[in-house]
Simulated assay, not measured.
Amino acid sequence: MTNTPNAIMLFAAGFGTRMGALTRDRPKPLIEVEGVALVDHALALAKDIAPASIVVNTHYHADQMARHLEPQGVTLSQEHPDILDTGGGLRAALPLLGDGPVFTMNTDAIWSGPNPLRLLSAAWDPAQMDALLMCVPTASALDHAGPGDFTMDPKGRLNRGPGLVYGGAQIIKTEGLAEIPELAFSLNRLWDAMERNGRLFGLSYPGTWCDVGHPGGIRTAEALLGGDHV
Rank of each mutant, 00 (worst) to 15 (best):
D143Q: 11
H144L: 13
I180M: 12
L183C: 03
L158M: 12
T220A: 03
V165T: 09
R67D: 14
T17D: 00
E79W: 11
Q128S: 10
D130L: 07
L90G: 05
G88V: 07
V74H: 07
N159F: 08
R199Q: 14
T75Y: 04
T151K: 11
W111D: 10
A44K: 13
I54G: 10
E195V: 08
E222Y: 12
A145L: 06
P215G: 01
P5C: 04
T107A: 06
R160C: 09
V55S: 04
S77M: 14
A223I: 05
H229I: 07
S77C: 15
Q128R: 14
T208Y: 05
D48K: 01
F201W: 14
A141V: 07
G35S: 10
A109I: 13
W209S: 01
H61S: 03
A42K: 06
Q72F: 07
L187V: 08
R91T: 11
N197T: 13
E70W: 10
L190H: 09
A66K: 14
A46S: 08
L203Y: 08
Q170Y: 09
D228A: 15
A127V: 11
P81R: 08
F11H: 02
N197L: 11
R91G: 07
L158G: 03
G216V: 05
G156M: 06
P71Q: 13
L224A: 05
